[in-house]
């Protein structure tokens, strides 16, 4: 179910401002890749180009190629809506739909897209997705209550359940734990470990320990100064990046000397 992502010479713009310059990297299927780097270096921006969420922002544009299993996402005949069904996303702040119950939140992607799903299928999917997101035990007796009534960590896991319910092949996570306590964070890290078996996962994080705990590969982004575009400095196995990085800037960042 999971796919390889190849990025070739990608430049990302907000209007005239070039936010990310010349990124090329390959993400293997069924791996966890972490993006690290100082604030404003374009991690979120780059992440959002992987499912064409970047172009939702007025004036935003992309140059270059993102190939998923050899097919360029930015080809003229590709429908961004279809891309987003394959590449799911979890945001920094939990954002369950406030008008919907927990159950409807999980089913949102399926229901909004296909309209019809039989009740037994729906119940099955809800249970499967919530179990997949490690939330089932906590919410199984209040599936019909609003999703916004959950704690922050539970809401974030609800959002993960919502993302995996549409069975994507890749899941992008933009600082999924930054608003969470250590216990919820651990729960989500465990979850990422489990999801890895089925999905390709890309995660942005400011937490070095988290990156080293959950990821197989790590990409370090950096920025020369304000107004300059962010660049991919080093991309390698997580152990290499954390134990003997090749670039001085990476080492400085990881050892906390800047950023």
């Amino acid at each position: 179910m999971s796919k390889r992502i190849e990025v070739k010479d990608l430049n990302v713009y907000y209007g005239k401002f070039k936010a990310v310059e010349d990124v090329s990297l390959t993400i293997e299927p069924r791996t966890v890749t972490a993006f690290i780097g100082p604030s404003g270096c374009g991690k979120s921006t780059f992440l959002r180009t992987l499912n064409r969420m970047h172009e939702v922002i007025p004036g935003a544009s992309v140059q270059g190629e993102v190939l998923i299993d050899g097919k360029n996402l930015y080809d003229a005949d590709v429908d961004p809506v279809m891309v987003r069904r394959q590449v799911g996303m979890v945001f920094q702040r939990p954002n369950p739909f406030p008008t919907m119950s927990i159950k409807d939140n999980v089913l949102a992607g399926v229901k909004l897209n296909n309209g019809k799903i039989s009740k037994s299928d729906a119940d099955h999917l809800v249970e499967k997705s919530l179990k997949g997101a490690n939330l089932w035990k906590e919410v199984r007796d209040r599936l019909d209550l609003p999703g916004s009534g959950l704690s922050g960590g539970q809401q974030q896991r609800l959002c993960i359940a919502r993302a995996i319910a549409v069975s994507p092949e890749v899941i992008l996570m933009d600082e999924p734990c930054s608003a969470l306590d250590p216990i919820s964070t651990l729960a989500i890290e465990d979850l990422i470990e489990e999801l890895k078996a089925k999905y390709t996962i890309v995660i942005v994080t400011h937490n070095m320990q988290q990156a080293s705990r959950v990821s197989d590969k790590t990409a370090f982004f950096n920025i020369a100064g304000t107004g300059e575009p962010g660049k991919l400095i080093e991309f390698d196995d997580t152990t290499t990046i954390f134990e003997n990085p090749h670039v001085q800037a990476t080492e400085d960042y990881i050892s906390g000397r800047f950023g």
């Binding site: 945001f91 954002n95 992607g109």
Partner: peptide, 11 residues
């Protein structure tokens, strides 16, 4: 964020 959440589901 709600719009983005929805777009990200392929809606």
């Amino acid at each position: 964020e709600l719009r983005e959440a929805s777009y990200a589901l392929g809606v």
